[in-house]
Write a protein that binds this DNA or RNA. Structure first.
Lengths: 142, 142
DNA sequence: TTATTAAAAGAGAATGATTCTCCAACAAGT
DNA sequence: ACTTGTTGGAGAATCATTCTCTTTTAATAA
């Protein structure tokens, strides 16, 4: 049993979820592929080892994982949902020419923003979380 | 003919779009209601004066308006799209307990961010636009 | 003002991601 | 191993959105 799977098991148990092969596979797929995949992409990947997993099951599991805060939905302008297993604070780089979305981690920026809003504040709004959407072009090939 | 409608006509003509009652109604609805409505909400509102407008027409017009940059899609975690007619640079406040989304304009913040990224830069990424998603709770009633 | 024509709207079917239902299988504690 | 509530499978159902095809209309020119 590899280390990642044990880690995932642990996460599931901590949230009071039963450990099942399907859940392990989906979380493992999401933690391995950091490209913010769609449900479709996850299904395709998982079917290599789990040929019989039902699409409805995948959607249901993704929903549960989002609810339990083990993964996140990624906001896009498309009606196809994408998912993210990185739960540490980070922002996203959105390609304006493709569907590519990359993580952007910058604790200096986070501190800057936090300080800014502590000083400035927003009337009648209590900030819980700040996420930047940086739209632009990637200069390297994926 | 009221001022807003003339203004909207102008916008359409500038983009090379024919001026139709349906397009006027949709843009007028979006410019009047700044709540980032769904297509469904726009249809419901418009039908008061345009009982016969087809839903397909509304979707088609919204698509054209997005393409011509007269309106924007608002990113959410739902698979129901929402639209925004405010094209000036602004950010969004997302309510963590409801579907409410409010605009947040802050040119001081924009300058701060611009300066930060000019200084810092992101490897292999050319920023075109920076949008903040501020998640939290509204302390007033809508 | 009317004629012309490409663009746009209408109606309703089609699509496709996601959700739901209902039953069988299974994980986890006894 | 046994029991039970939870979870997965299969496929139908849903519903926002898109597509197709036809009719209407806005904008231009005669």
């Amino acid at each position: 049993m590899n280390l990642l799977l044990n880690e995932i098991k642990q996460k599931l148990l901590e949230k009071g979820l039963k450990v099942t092969p399907q859940r392990l596979a989906i979380l493992q797929a999401l933690m391995t592929h950091k490209n913010h995949p769609t449900a479709e992409m996850i299904i395709e990947y998982i079917r290599y080892n789990h040929p019989n997993i039902a699409t409805g099951t995948v959607y249901k599991i993704l929903e549960v994982l989002v609810e339990k805060e083990l993964i996140r939905k990624v906001q896009t302008e498309k009606d196809i949902m994408r998912y993210d297993a990185i739960m540490d604070k980070h922002h996203h780089l959105y390609c304006s020419e493709s569907e590519r979305i990359e993580d952007y981690v910058d604790s200096e920026l986070d501190e800057l923003l936090e300080a800014y809003f502590i000083k400035k504040g927003i009337p009648d709004f209590k900030i819980e979380d700040i996420r930047l959407h940086l739209n632009g072009k990637f200069l390297n090939l994926e």
